[in-house]
Amino acid sequence: MARDRREHRNPVRQTRPATSATRRTWYGLGKLSRAEKSGFGRFLHDCSHIFGDISILALPTLFAIVAAPGPGIYDATAAGLLAWMAMVFVGTLIRGGWIRPPATETLGWVALSPLLVVLRFVYYNLALTVAVFGSVWLAGAVGVPPLSLVAALVVAIVSMLAFPRVAESVYATVRER
């Protein structure tokens, strides 16, 4: 029976956090446990998980955002902070099962495997770079500075909604070879 559950499991997605109120908890001194969490507790737990996932792998772009000079409140730093927060928020909602990403039937966030960690590194940095520097460039070209924040927010949200489907497609393509 346990074998049947493993065979029907999607290897690209972490479905348990999206379908259960239990989360793995660390109590210190090497003791791991599972704990039942309230909706708010699950949100905080999932938020910290996704925050670490995105922040660690997107460090190159986050450093570039911090180092980018800016003329005011609509600069790359502001757009970067907004895009980063939006990516974490949408990823949290997907991981917790509160929203279903488009073009996929599976709830939950993308699983951790070597291939998918490499994909995350490329995808997060590319998405954050386009969201921040693309939106600042667009706002400058159009001459509407607040557009940088709106465009960064839209690109960040769309990129995170698309990531689970992109991961499934890349995994399937690599697995066929």
Results as ranks from 00 to 15, higher is better:
Thr77Met: 07
Ala79Trp: 12
Gly80Thr: 10
Leu128Tyr: 02
Val66Pro: 06
Leu128His: 03
Leu59Ser: 10
Asn125Pro: 09
Trp109Leu: 03
Thr61Arg: 11
Ala127His: 05
Pro101Gln: 02
Val88Ser: 06
Ser55Thr: 06
Arg100Tyr: 05
Ala86Trp: 04
Pro114His: 11
Pro71Asn: 15
Leu107Phe: 10
Ala78Phe: 05
Leu93His: 05
Leu112Glu: 15
Arg120Asp: 10
Thr61Lys: 09
Ser113Asp: 13
Asp53Ser: 05
Leu93Ser: 08
Gly96Ala: 13
Thr104Val: 11
Val110Phe: 00
Gly108His: 03
Arg120His: 13
Gly91Phe: 09
Trp98Gln: 12
Ile73Val: 13
Leu81Tyr: 02
Ala76Met: 13
Pro69Ser: 14
Val110Glu: 05
Thr77Gln: 14
Trp98Glu: 13
Ala127Asp: 03
Val118Asp: 01
Phe51Cys: 07
Gly108Thr: 05
Thr92Ser: 08
Ala58Trp: 09
Val90Met: 03
Ala76Cys: 13
Ile65Asp: 02
Thr61Met: 15
Trp84Ala: 00
Pro71Met: 08
Leu119Gln: 13
Val90Arg: 07
Thr61Ser: 13
Thr129Trp: 03
Pro114Phe: 13
Phe121Thr: 14
Val117Phe: 06
Phe63His: 08
Ala111Cys: 09
Gly72His: 10
Ala86Arg: 00
Asp75Pro: 07
Val118Ile: 11
